Simulated assay, not measured.
Amino acid sequence: MGSTPGRLLMVTIPDQALVHAAGEYAHGDISLDATERLEDPRVGQLVRMLSEEEQGIFQADRLFTESVTQALAALLIRTRGTSRNFQPVPSGGLAPAQLRRVVDYMRAHLDRELSLAELAEEAKLSPPYFGQMFLRSTGQTPHRFLLGLRIDRAKEMLRAPWVRMMDVSLACGFKTQQHFSRTFRIFCSLSPRAYRNQVLN
C-alpha cells in the first residue's frame, strides 16, 4: 500500500514570548513537559494561522504575528507547563478606562503598524495578559478588532468620491491595495469600489 507523504512544519517560539507567558501563570522557574505527540486542536489552529501567514495567504502585520505567537506560548505554558507556583488566570477583562485608552490609541494610529507591546503599554499590562483580557472584553483579538476599526475608517473615506483608493489604503494602515481590497471584502462581502458605487448611487 502506498503512503501519503507527511508535511513537517517547524515552529520556533521566541524566548521572550515564553518568558512573558510564564510570568503570568507562575512565579519562579517553569518548564514544559516533553511529549512525543501533542494533539490539541487549539495548538493546531494557531500553528496553521502562522503557517498560512508565512506562505503569504494572509498579508498579516506585526500585531497579528505577535498575538498568535503569544497565544501559542500562553497555551503551551498553561497546558504543558510544570511549576509549583501556578496562578489562576483572573476572570473578567479590561477595565472600561483601560479599554477606552487602547481603542483611542488604535484609532489615532490606524495608518501605521502597531505592536502588541505598545497596545499593552496603554493598558499598563504585560503583552500576554493584555491579549487575553482584551479578548474577554471585546470577544475579538487585538488584531481582529484593529482590522474592524480600519475598515470603518475606510468606509468613511470611500464616501468621498475624490479620495483615491491608494490613499484610503495607506490611511487605513494596509500595506498594499490588494491587501486592503481582500480584507474589505472579508468584512463587507463586496469590494471597496463596489461599496463606493453602492453608497454614492
Rank of each mutant, 00 (worst) to 15 (best):
R48H: 13
G93S: 02
Y25A: 07
Y25Q: 06
L38P: 03
A60L: 05
S51G: 10
H20Q: 08
Q70R: 15
A74K: 00
R37H: 03
R80T: 07
T35C: 08
E39A: 08
G56C: 05
A17H: 04
A95C: 09
L72K: 00
G23E: 09
L38H: 07
L99C: 01
P41N: 04
L76C: 08
V43H: 12
P88I: 07
G92D: 06
V43S: 06
Q98C: 06
R80D: 11
S51H: 09
I13R: 04
A74D: 08
I30S: 01
G81P: 03
L46I: 08
T65K: 13
Q59A: 05
H27F: 14
R78V: 12
A17L: 00
T79F: 05
S83R: 15
R62V: 14
L46E: 14
V43N: 05
P41K: 02
A26L: 14
V47Y: 06
Q45K: 11
R78D: 03
P88A: 03
R48T: 15
N85I: 12
R100Q: 15
A71Y: 10
V19H: 09
E66M: 05
D61H: 08
I13G: 04
D29K: 07
V68Y: 10
A97W: 09
T79W: 13
G23C: 00
R62T: 11
F58R: 05
D33A: 12
A73V: 02
S67R: 15
A95V: 10
R42M: 12
G28W: 03
L46A: 07
S51R: 11
Q98W: 04
T35S: 13
L50F: 11
Q45N: 15
Q16K: 08
Q98D: 07
E66K: 05
M49S: 00
R42T: 12
Q16P: 01
Q55I: 06
A97K: 02
R37A: 02
T82N: 10
A21H: 00
A26E: 14
S51P: 01
P41C: 15
R62K: 11
T35V: 10
A71G: 07
R78S: 11
E66P: 00
M49H: 07
V43K: 04
G56Y: 09
Q59R: 13
S31Y: 09
L76P: 09
L94I: 15
R84K: 09
R62A: 07
R100C: 13
E39F: 14
S31C: 02
H27D: 10
L32E: 00
E53Q: 14
H27R: 15
E36W: 07
A97E: 13
R80G: 05
A34C: 12
A73D: 02
L50A: 05
F86H: 06
R42K: 10
L63W: 03
E24Y: 10
E66F: 11
G92S: 14
I57D: 12
S91I: 11
Q16N: 15
S83N: 13
Q45M: 13
D33Q: 10
T79M: 12
